[in-house]
Computed example of a mutant assay.
Amino acid sequence: MANRLGLGDEEEGDVGTLWHSLEWLTFCVMVVGGALPYASQYQQILQTKNTDGFSTHVCLVLLVANILRILFWFGKQFEVTLLLQSVVMVLTMLVMLNLCCSVQNTNRITTKQQHITDLEPRFFWSWDGFEDYLIFLLAFTLPCAFTTLLLLDSSLFVESLGFLAVLTEAMLGLPQLLQNQRKHSTTGMSVNMVLLWIAGDSFKTAYFALKQSPLQFLLCGLTQVLVDLAILYQVCLYSQDPWDKLA
């Protein structure tokens, strides 16, 4: 018997299968899509053995933001897709940091190294050992997790934690934007990474709107798209032939 849409059982099954496939594709894009832009930057650093065009402060922003977002989930359980997205992003940023440390140590001229235990504020997030970054992240995560556990029943704290998480994530492109502005150059930065940022953040923002995710996520997505477009403008501004650079 035909259903209300005039579809037979077989056609209805095909539509259901297609819809399920689209949902699964959306899930995969949301979970790993945010990490994909860094594959291009990773490959570029690996080939050139140079990290000058990539700001490791991007890693700092994303690590802090996604650790806070994971803690936010325990107070306000949003889609598991977004939780997995944060876990994947944390792992991706650790891989990027490990590569940057390896390349910088290979290229280092002096024997003097900077470590977190030196307690030098001017060398914050410019340490030579990957383990220094792990120590910082552990020192950051444990107190935050303990505080979240204590105040889990406070809606004010939970909502504030969510806003802090997405506000930090919204500043993702800011370190790269400022570095480009300071150097008046985007040389060494993967333009493909920026283009994928724009595509990914636009898709993510649309997903937040359609899924009626917490307001914090939507505001974060819109801000990220604007920053991404500003970085793309820098590519055109600082390149003598922007169309070649975008090719």
Score class of each variant (00 low, 15 high):
K76M: 09
Y133L: 01
L219R: 05
T186C: 10
T147W: 12
N192Y: 01
P37R: 05
S185K: 04
D132H: 04
L22E: 05
N107G: 04
M89W: 11
D228M: 08
T187Y: 09
P175C: 12
G16A: 12
S102C: 07
V64T: 08
Q47M: 05
P143L: 11
T110M: 03
S202G: 00
T148S: 12
A199R: 02
M89Q: 14
V64I: 12
A209H: 02
L232A: 13
L152V: 03
A139V: 13
V194C: 13
L91I: 13
H20W: 11
D153L: 06
T141P: 05
S155P: 05
E79D: 11
T141C: 07
Q181G: 11
Q234Y: 02
L156Q: 13
A139G: 13
P175R: 15
A39K: 00
R182G: 10
S202Y: 00
N3L: 15
L60T: 05
Q216F: 11
L218K: 06
G8S: 14
G16K: 14
S102N: 12
F217E: 13
C236Q: 06
N50K: 09
Q216D: 09
A209W: 05
G8M: 11
C101N: 07
C220I: 06
L174E: 12
M1R: 15
G33Y: 03
A39H: 00
N192S: 08
S213K: 02
M1V: 15
T51V: 09
F146N: 06
T223F: 13
L36V: 05
E10V: 14
E131F: 03
L68V: 03
L99F: 04
Q176S: 15
Q234G: 10
M193T: 07
I198K: 00
Q43D: 02
Y42I: 01
D201S: 03
E169W: 14
L195T: 01
V29F: 12
F146A: 14
G16C: 07
K183A: 15
Y207G: 01
K204V: 00
Q47G: 06
F157Q: 03
N98F: 04
G162T: 08
L177T: 13
L246W: 02
D14V: 13
A247Q: 07
C101Y: 01
L25V: 07
D228I: 07
L232H: 08
